[in-house]
Computed example of a mutant assay.
Amino acid sequence: MKLILAILSNDDSPVASNALNKNGFSVTKLATTGGFLRAGNTTLIIGCEDEKVEAAIDIIKEYSSKRTEIVPSTASYDIGRYASFPVEVTVGGATIFVLDVAQFLKV
């Protein structure tokens, strides 16, 4: 048995979790926050049999699109003042961890 932890954008998580549910996967959703952009994410927790891991990953990939966004950034100048200017960054996609499960209980 495996445990899949998938960190997705809040924009992508509803369709990804619905698709996983429709394909027989039980999904637990956690609200999380990314450290780089300090933006809200969703972490999906999925327990599944070893042979179903690739199917779950394929679904997550299908519904986790990468895109670019303009975010404010700060830069310092020599005179000690700070100015904010927009920077284009890639967001979205998914970060997926697959862990071995030593024991699974449903009580």
Rank of each mutant, 00 (worst) to 15 (best):
T33R: 11
I60M: 07
V89Q: 05
P72A: 03
T42Q: 07
G24D: 03
K66M: 10
V91Y: 04
G24I: 01
P14I: 03
I96C: 13
A83T: 00
Y82D: 14
V101Y: 04
G34Q: 03
A75Q: 13
I4K: 01
F36Y: 14
Q103V: 15
I57F: 07
E69Q: 13
L30A: 11
V101D: 05
P86A: 02
K66H: 10
E51P: 00
F104Y: 12
F85Y: 08
V91H: 03
T42I: 08
R81P: 06
V71M: 01
P86Y: 00
P72W: 04
E54N: 10
L20D: 13
S73R: 09
E69W: 07
L105K: 15
I60E: 05
T95I: 08
G80Y: 02
N18W: 11
A56S: 07
F36E: 10
V89C: 07
V107C: 01
G34N: 04
V89K: 13
A19D: 09
G92C: 02
P72S: 07
A83I: 01
A55K: 14
F104A: 14
E51G: 06
F104L: 12
V87E: 05
K2W: 00
T95W: 06
T74Y: 08
M1E: 06
L44E: 00
P14K: 04
G47A: 14
Q103S: 15
G80L: 05
E88Q: 15
N23Y: 06
A83W: 00
G92Y: 12
A31I: 07
N21S: 08
L37E: 00
S13T: 03
S64Y: 12
G40F: 01
A56N: 05
S17D: 00
C48P: 01
A39L: 14
